[in-house]
Design a protein around this nucleic acid. Sequence first.
DNA 1: CGATGTTTTGCAACCGGTTTCAGGCGGCCA
DNA 2: TGGCCGCCTGAAACCGGTTGCAAAACATCG
Lengths: 332, 332
Amino acid sequence: MPVTLLDVAVRAGVSKSAVSRTFTPGASVSAKTRAKVEAAARALGYQPNVLASSLTTGRTKLIGLISNNFTNPFFLEIFDHFTRAIQDAGLRPLLINLSDEVDAGKSLGMLRQYNVDGVIVASSTLPPEFAMVFHDAGLPVVHAFGWSQPSPRTALVSIDNAGAGALAAQTLLARDYRKIGFLGGPESAATTQDRAKGFADVLTAAGLNPALRYAEAYSYAAGRVAMLAAQAARPDVEAWFCGDDVIAVGAMDAARSLGLDVPGDIGFLGLNDMAMASWDRVALTTIRQPLTQIVERSVDLIQRGIDAPDEMPGMSLLPCKLVERGTLRALP
Amino acid sequence: MPVTLLDVAVRAGVSKSAVSRTFTPGASVSAKTRAKVEAAARALGYQPNVLASSLTTGRTKLIGLISNNFTNPFFLEIFDHFTRAIQDAGLRPLLINLSDEVDAGKSLGMLRQYNVDGVIVASSTLPPEFAMVFHDAGLPVVHAFGWSQPSPRTALVSIDNAGAGALAAQTLLARDYRKIGFLGGPESAATTQDRAKGFADVLTAAGLNPALRYAEAYSYAAGRVAMLAAQAARPDVEAWFCGDDVIAVGAMDAARSLGLDVPGDIGFLGLNDMAMASWDRVALTTIRQPLTQIVERSVDLIQRGIDAPDEMPGMSLLPCKLVERGTLRALP
DNA sequence: CGATGTTTTGCAACCGGTTTCAGGCGGCCA
DNA sequence: TGGCCGCCTGAAACCGGTTGCAAAACATCG
């Protein structure tokens, strides 16, 4: 049923090679032949079969897009941007939902069956070793939203997590908060640790001693229970920097359920700037991740990795920006 | 670099065919040969190349997953379920983000290049004709969350939209609302029309005349502006049934910005039951779509379509259920 | 033990492309 | 007009698998 290269060749009265060359950029075909082939191809509605050509070229234009975060609404925005950027680069995303799987080997197996040209790991909770597995298998890989190690062995695009933590601390200090806490995502995630460190360093330098607490997941529910516990343990804290917007919302709802007013009695600062942070009923003051740039840079790096597999992996740490809304008290 | 079938054959001391047959369920191989091959394959870490085999079998185990809704948070849940269900069925999702593209031909071209085995269209705003394009091209297709036509020509899995509208109307009537409105999604979407009709039919039968209004998109912002306009035109309405949760939240925020109390002055009923509907600060009374079942049924139908391409397309309309929270006044 | 029937096996062709290679053709120059 | 060169072209091999077919191996039975 589908029309093949041979069909086009016959109709155009040329060889298979001629047709193939017509569709291969930079190949040697005369203008006359090309015209005949293109006419025939158009008449027949020919679509070259990427899979067949991948056999000889070794290129599928398939990118494995791996994530384990299908519950945090910020990731819908991430997927939106990633799928568009991948498509616009002439590639196609093969999506892998890890759920709770942490064994990269299984994903590697899946992706190798399809000969993907590269892999993008979009996750802030997976360890660098996860991405390394693909690297070791010879696949170009970019870890987006990952942990900024001193000398990363895979390409990495992320925010400067320590910098974001520092910005958060400065933001709270500037608003005259002195009893300050950090409510991070899962404690095991290195991104969380970086944020905590950048945050704590600034505060210690200011002679303060921040409370440090962690939610068990990047979710509303986890933020809620973590804040209930935090309020029991540290009711003195006046402002919390949360490692994620959705955790922040959960935490704020917990605070309100205890009769506290935001930002009157207690302040909250988020991280990400998800779409819902700007809803009236949320109006979360937060630190924005430069999502568009992270995605653009990731796709750019993956393409580089495909074109020049031997180049050193790149690392991009992008700066964050404060977005002022209504969950912190005003500047004095 | 990657190990091929031939490598395994050489190592096991058998022919290519023997190796191929070992990995083909139901093929004729002796236990002895199979053992040798499996040992060799294991030792070499062999992964059969799905793409190469697809050349002869015509099967890629690739499913095109198409959507144009990457901003409605409910769709993150949908993607989560779909990607998992597709993976669990031994298939892989090739994701296409339509953005504003409405020409199915372009997607068809992309997907044919990869010889996908089937297509799932996950969208409540795309017309049935969109899915038909794939059907006409000979590809199994399922339209999930689509419009329930009397005699669908492609497989369809969706809620009973008219039924959901009727349930909404009954819910509002039971709570003694009499001035009632419908704030739907895009007016051009047939799903919206079905919901409006089911809703209006019940109310007309009760001697009432509902206000009908439409938001321009399934988004918070669209819900907000639509409600501001609605309040200007129909300030008498006491309860609105919104065609989507996120529209409902936008509408409620608009109402609050006008000084109205929910549910004291005005009631709201949503549709979907997205995760955030249960957040304290939302607590939206809404009609739940049976997401898990819709996804399961869709994947089931796609597999049927692959196995028996000539069968009649199936249609599944699943019932919805009311989820009571805090945005409607209590039952009398 | 030979005849017959049933598995199992390898060869070779094929899927839809790409690419090497040798030769054909036309153009240019002397 | 002949010779040389460079650009195009088609034949054929190949990518990594699958599968029809015929022969080999094995099992069964009289």
